[in-house]
């Protein structure tokens, strides 16, 4: 009896706590004067502190754009490194306001874990890297191969699915993280090494003999990566979603960090005027001011600029836009209209 009362009290207080935190993220961020962004513990190109402790990367830039949109200052972000194990609990418990950390949007995470994946800022997929002299040109020829694979990730499950679907067998070589996988692969402990294609490209770029390694054409999984917020605070979800879409829209409309002021002063295009807050009251509808998109763009440029600066073909990582090109250029990045 006493136990059940005790447990009931805990459950009730947890519910109350949950209800109190819903709808309140925006107020909490404004009151704090700082956005707390759940980030990686270090992922090349996407999010890591540099030699001076300054966070840089593709995901980090979205955090900064969000801080600029909400608080008017792109530097007002605290980055909390989260691991694969702690990331969702950190978000659920309110330790972070938003998780922008290469998290794959899946059915169970969206529903059972009670999160909202508000948009996709990077479409990734799992690939394979092999040494050229293995003489393999397709992942379908990997029957009987030894595969270096990180344990406890969706990539492990995708790998099993792929080999089963193609009626092939493999021997897994379990590794703990990406750097160990690369080291094992280079030492010859496995024939092939599999992880997200963006990770493979980054690893290959830093190998001493990059030309001797190829990434096989098959992409065996869908990994839509995007910002995640708590279920139930829809207003906050809208803010994150439309900040991301504002960046995509800006690329589509040719607005960059450099020319945004100029465009704002001279444009007559009604869509641009709505995006930059010169017309209508888009920002007010989501609890911000009308300049929010303009500030987000000024923080680090539009979507394409952020991509090029952090992971694009001009960087050593050298990822092609691929699926992440705008829809007008054959990609999947498509922002709904601002109206």
């Amino acid at each position: 009896m006493k136990t059940s009362v005790f447990l009931g009290t805990i459950a009730a207080s947890a519910l109350l706590a949950g209800a109190a935190s819903a709808q309140a993220t925006l107020e909490a961020v404004k009151a704090r004067g700082e956005l707390i962004c759940g980030s990686n513990t270090g992922l090349t190109g996407f999010g890591a502190p540099d030699a001076n402790g300054e966070w840089k990367g593709f995901d980090v830039s979205l955090c900064r754009a969000l801080a600029a949109a909400v608080l008017g200052d792109a530097t007002k972000v605290q980055f909390v490194p989260t691991t694969g194990e702690t990331r969702f609990t950190s978000l659920a418990s309110g330790e972070v306001d938003v998780l922008i950390r290469n998290s794959t949007w899946t059915f169970t995470r969206d529903t059972e874990l009670a999160f909202d994946f508000v948009s996709v800022n990077y479409y990734d997929g799992q690939g394979f890297m092999v040494k050229k002299d293995l003489g393999v040109s397709s992942a379908k020829e990997l029957d009987g191969a030894t595969v270096c694979i990180q344990t406890g990730t969706t990539t492990e499950l995708n790998l099993a699915d792929f080999f089963k679907a193609n009626n092939m067998s493999y021997t897994p070589v379990n590794v703990a993280d990406d750097s160990e996988a690369a080291a094992q692969y280079l030492a010859g402990a496995c024939d092939t090494y599999t992880t997200d294609a963006s990770g493979l490209a980054a690893s290959r770029a830093t190998m001493a003999d990059a030309a001797n390694h190829i990434i096989l054409p098959e992409i065996i999984s869908k990994e839509p990566l995007g910002p995640v917020v708590r279920h139930g605070d829809n207003n906050w979800g809208d803010i994150v979603r439309w900040t991301q879409y504002a960046l995509v829209m800006a690329e589509e409309l040719g607005i960059t960090a450099a020319n945004v002021e100029e465009v704002a002063a001279s444009t007559t295009n009604p869509e641009v005027r709505r995006l930059l807050g010169l017309e209508g009251d888009m920002g007010v509808k989501i609890g911000l001011d009308n300049d929010f998109a303009k500030r987000a763009i000024m923080a680090g440029g539009n979507y394409g600029e952020i991509f090029e600066a952090n992971i694009g073909s001009s960087t050593p990582i050298g990822l092609a836009r691929g699926l992440n090109a705008l829809w007008t250029q054959g990609g999947l990045q498509y922002a709904p209209p601002f109206r």
Partner: peptide, 11 residues
Amino acid sequence: NVVRADINWKG
């Protein structure tokens, strides 16, 4: 991990 995430020191 953080140091290795820097593209200069990855690998």
